[in-house]
Design a protein around this nucleic acid. Structure first.
Lengths: 349, 349
DNA sequence: GTGAAAGCGCTAACAA
DNA sequence: TTGTTAGCGCTTTCAC
């Protein structure tokens, strides 16, 4: 069945020319080498006839690059990351590149391994949503010559191009919205401590509080990862002690956390926003369709994280590195007001 | 900075042994070739010292396989596929394989291109969620020697191993549930016509109707893809003509379609299940948290499509092809009853 | 205008 | 027990 795949060698043999000629023609530099029209046509025809398809692996070995982009993501099953990945995949495909996908699973060891793996596969560039606690290994890859762009999270004071949303601003807006609706005791359900997403979001929360003259109660900052369970358990805690902690609102720093909160409150029959208000990071298709339409923080629809990252990456790859391309991009955020926040101003005053 | 990456050659030179010795040691067959303990240790030490990391590309070229699995998916941003992809990624990583990701975007041309690309990258196997309208190109890849496993959708009477959910059964259960609650005029919002998912789901719907003595009204089967907009527009149509079409329930064949329906009904202030009942294919984390908790069809949680597919694939790869491994697996489905179906039996009788 | 040949890093058949 | 060498398919320098 599978008759040996044809190679430039077989084309050359068939035509009685040399492999270099075939290679040149197939790489479109036939003209440059002043190869005769006749030969050029013959090569193309034979390539089609023999069903020739170039061997990328051999090419990569020779060229030390692979027309491939590595993508490292903590969790592809998170819709936010999936959306980014899908955009990146589409765009790279259009440019003739392919995607090597690695899930880091929020595990720094896997992240490190993935990175050397990609390096080893001679990917032309890497786009990574880092766990965010360490950056040396990423910087190393970059220094060793593989262009890297960091997305969604970033490192302050580290020379790595990034594109992220302005998490600080988003969190600030969310918190301020709550404050303007009379809330003073606002819980902040945080994600992985130490990551930029989290630092920035918690930072924005704290700043908003302080700007509005509300003293920070550190007990109100709770949680430790961006998962469903984190939201679920802390929401239960909050509601159990509501008479003591006097919490009237929650700022959730991630979509999965929010789902956990929603589930807990549903089970406990806690009314949103009747008993407790909620603003969540990350807008999703279903946000407005939940039992309480959610007020969320989203980045502007028309800007695309993935596309921008790719642009930065290709700038690096082609070493054009246009001086005017900013090395770090922070996309603006947007507060989408729906029905999960209750105005309790009167009660408070 | 980036001093030339070390190779087995450099290790050999450093140690004054031959490359084959180094290769053997590094491949763990040193013992088999009775290479001296001393040499073995020396090689390992030097490998570490020189920070040696094997060049997968060279290896692949030589071996004609790449320790890589190709994954072709219509849309990685669909949470259902993303979940499968994430499972597969994790499992392959554990086995020392990597994932080449291709989004086919429900475009048959892209699917074909992706397949030859993967073949060309000498992937050791391919897992594909096919568009489903054609299968020759997939069969061809398989015949040319690259193991392929089809998931989520499948082809009847085509010799390609698959693991899918029992869409027919699921749809049957969904429709029957509606019928048992007194519904007779049930709209079926279908996905891409001609795909197995759709064939099976619509087939189950029709069979349930017929088994319960309800004549099929073909006008009630509407739609043409699995997207959000498809659900949105048809839901609007349905509600506009509700006095004429007398539809009392909808069976949606996909999660995105359902979101579209929900959005349309919310805009039009149509009550679910008050005015119209709804059962949807695909259970999601948010299904119970929507404005009307959704009754859904899910496959059993403890079975995993991705893992099973991988198992089939590795069976093929290792040519063990244990005769007792079924070539096609259809996972059972489950009806999760929540609050989106109203019992209208009395009204009807 | 075209070809010969080296070499990317690795494995494995064959030799010793 | 270890080494030599061919060759995977391709690009590119140098030669003619």
């Amino acid at each position: 069945m599978s008759k040996k795949a044809s190679t430039i060698q077989s084309i050359a043999d068939e035509l009685g020319v040399s492999v270099s000629t075939v290679s040149r023609v197939l790489n479109g530099v036939g003209k440059k080498y002043r190869i005769s029209e006749k030969t050029i046509d013959a090569v193309h025809e034979m390539a089609i006839k023999l069903n020739y398809v170039p061997n990328n692996i051999a090419k990569s070995l020779r060229l030390k690059k692979s027309s491939t982009i590595g993508l490292v993501i903590p969790d592809i099953s998170n819709p936010w990351f999936a959306k980014i990945a899908s955009k990146i995949e589409k765009e790279t495909r259009n440019k003739g590149y392919n995607i090597f996908l690695c899930n880091s699973d929020d595990d720094i060891e896997i992240e490190k391994r993935s990175l050397s793996l990609l390096q080893n596969w001679m990917v032309d560039g890497i786009i990574i949503v880092p766990i965010g606690l360490e950056h040396e290994h990423i910087l190393k890859v970059s220094k060793e010559g593989t262009p890297v762009v960091v997305i969604d999270r970033f490192f302050e004071n580290v020379d790595l191009p990034y594109v992220s949303t302005n998490d600080f601003e988003g969190a600030y807006k969310a918190t301020e919205h709550l404050i303007k609706n009379g809330h003073r005791r606002i819980a902040c359900l945080q994600g992985i401590i130490g990551t930029s997403s989290n630092n920035q979001r918690v930072g924005g929360y704290i700043k908003a509080l302080s700007d509005h003259g509300i003293a920070l109660d550190e007990n109100l900052i709770m949680g430790s990862d961006f998962g469903f369970d984190n939201g679920y358990t802390h929401a239960k805690h909050i509601i159990k002690d509501i008479s003591k902690n006097k919490i009237t609102a929650i700022f959730s720093t991630g979509n999965q956390i929010t789902l956990g909160v929603l589930k807990a409150f549903k089970e406990k029959k806690v009314k949103i926003p009747g008993q407790i208000s909620l603003v969540s990071y990350d807008e999703e298709a279903y946000s407005e369709l939940l039992y309480t339409p959610l007020s969320t923080i989203s980045h502007l629809e028309d800007e695309d994280l993935g596309i921008l990252a790719l642009k930065l990456l290709f700038d690096e790859i082609s070493i054009i590195s246009s001086a005017d391309t900013p090395k770090g991009i922070l996309l603006p955020t947007q507060l989408i007001k729906r029905e999960s926040v209750l105005n309790i101003s009167k009660k408070v005053q």
